[in-house]
Amino acid sequence: MSEQRTRPVGFGIWLIVASVIGWWAAFQLTIDKFIQLENPDADLNCNVSVMIQCGKNLDSWQGEIFGFPNPIIGLTGWMAPLVVGVAVLAGTRFPRWFWAAFGAGMTFAIGFVGWLIWQSLYATNLGVLCPWCMLTWAITIPTFLATMVHLARNGTFSRSERFRERAGRLMVWVPLATILVYAVVIALIQLRGLDLLGEVVGMIV
């Protein structure tokens, strides 16, 4: 078994970098939520324009879908990739069930992000883009893709040596796959952006 397979340094580094960025975005949203609670009329730094802001998202029911502010999920959730990334660099070997659980967590994360993207664009009470939320989306997408490829190559999905070898070749395609997903999200934003712009102009007129 190769060293790359037993100790995926690149994957570990990415988990650490992604978790730090994701945690920082969640932290900023948490601070903005505190400011909003103290002063509902406060002009948050993330409120760039009518269409790009986080205040409306934080104040919506989507912003606390589980009964508490969503940023708390980010503050706690991004700790998992950080710990796993550090452990991977340290040479820790996790059992198959652990990787399966980690993969389940990342699947929940990408599903939640997909739902938030849809809500931000198409929910009648939102229709705005949150800067810190978009940073979270941008980090979660490649982290999910890289994790799925890693689970395929480390034997979590299948113990077949042939399957694992083929999966190992897919990691170099994660950046391209990420760009393609970004393109889809940007296209949705552009299409929805035209509708939002029309609504804004209509309100002014």
Rank of each mutant, 00 (worst) to 15 (best):
M1A: 13
Q4L: 11
P8Y: 09
G10P: 05
G10W: 08
G12F: 13
L15F: 06
S19G: 10
G22C: 11
A26T: 02
F27N: 11
T30K: 04
D32G: 01
L44H: 05
N45A: 10
I52A: 07
L58A: 14
S60C: 14
G63R: 06
P69C: 09
P71N: 09
L75D: 05
V84W: 08
G85E: 08
G85P: 03
L89Q: 08
A90F: 15
T92N: 06
W97F: 14
W97Q: 08
A104S: 14
G105N: 07
A109I: 01
F112S: 08
F112V: 07
V113K: 01
Q119N: 04
Q119S: 03
Q119Y: 04
L121Q: 04
N125G: 06
V128S: 01
V128G: 01
C130V: 06
P131K: 08
C133T: 11
L135K: 06
W137A: 05
I141G: 00
T143S: 13
F144C: 03
F144T: 00
M148G: 03
V149I: 11
L151C: 15
R153I: 00
N154H: 15
T156N: 13
S160T: 03
R164C: 12
L170C: 10
V172E: 12
A177N: 04
Y182H: 05
A183N: 00
V185D: 01
L194A: 10
V200C: 00
V201K: 09
M203L: 13
